[in-house]
Design a protein around this nucleic acid. Sequence first.
DNA 1: AATTATTTGAACATAATGCTTCATTCACAT
DNA 2: ATGTGAATGAAGCATTATGTTCAAATAATT
Lengths: 160, 160
Amino acid sequence: MSTSDQKRELDGLDAKLLLELIEQPDATTVALAQRLSVSRNTVQARLQKLGQGTLESFQRRVSPRTMGYDVEAFMNASIRQGYDRETMKALAEIPEVLQIFATTGDADLRLTVTARSTDDLYRVNRLILDIPGIVRTSTSVVLREFLSYRTKPLLERIIE
Amino acid sequence: MSTSDQKRELDGLDAKLLLELIEQPDATTVALAQRLSVSRNTVQARLQKLGQGTLESFQRRVSPRTMGYDVEAFMNASIRQGYDRETMKALAEIPEVLQIFATTGDADLRLTVTARSTDDLYRVNRLILDIPGIVRTSTSVVLREFLSYRTKPLLERIIE
DNA sequence: AATTATTTGAACATAATGCTTCATTCACAT
DNA sequence: ATGTGAATGAAGCATTATGTTCAAATAATT
């Protein structure tokens, strides 16, 4: 039982593998193997393990912007106690709601929301406010993305 | 010149393709072709276009949690005027800073930050506060992720 | 030192890929 | 309606990758 634990932390090879894939997402197994100077079998085994649970969904690579949703916003929302489950369900039924977090701090929920325009964002905001259990919202619109999501430095730190 | 514009919006086929890839990220080109009842050439062409600019980096699929960074937090930070460029550069040099947005609202910046633990988060917070130009920060730690990033509903909306 | 886990290399049949060509269909502007 | 350019489908071919298995070598743990 102690053999293959569920959640093993990434080692150097895993990190190198992921870094390569960041550079060349469509790199073939053999290409990765020779670039990292390991056998094809090893790469194959590692990739399989990475695929099983450690890698996030492909969805992460899809940007709403591609679909014409040019506005991104963060929203704080307070919910009435006891309405949690149903409120969450209603929120999840709105396609423009991309993420829902519960966080510490004043507001109960933190949403990532997208919209086609600022006008459209207003519409989405109303949709959310109409959900029973939602008390109030405060929105901040993304003006600019100075640094887009990256984990590369963390991966590089693993190697050395 | 009007032939192939840079940013074309996704059509139904693109959306279907992406939805398939969400279900089976390692699906082969031919498998996708027969599942969508289009020719292999078409899938190949579409995937190539998607790879050129519309798809976000593979980095998005890498979760800090995989690397032992179990804490995720959002941080609002105010910056002193005129320090923008250098401050941003200093922030980007901290591996635990995953994202930087400029947003409307009280705070100037909104950061996504990760850390190994809450103690570690405190350390990262100090790193950020020590950056010249950063005036103050307010942090909210993610307690739970009710809905993890998804664009599937938006994609499905394109189809019908 | 002993045991277990991981890696390696090799082989094989099967399948996918990249690329090209070409006819056809489609969308759109004239 | 008509012409133009782009997107698609179909087919073929040489090359390359894949999945799989296995025994031996190496590394890591106890």
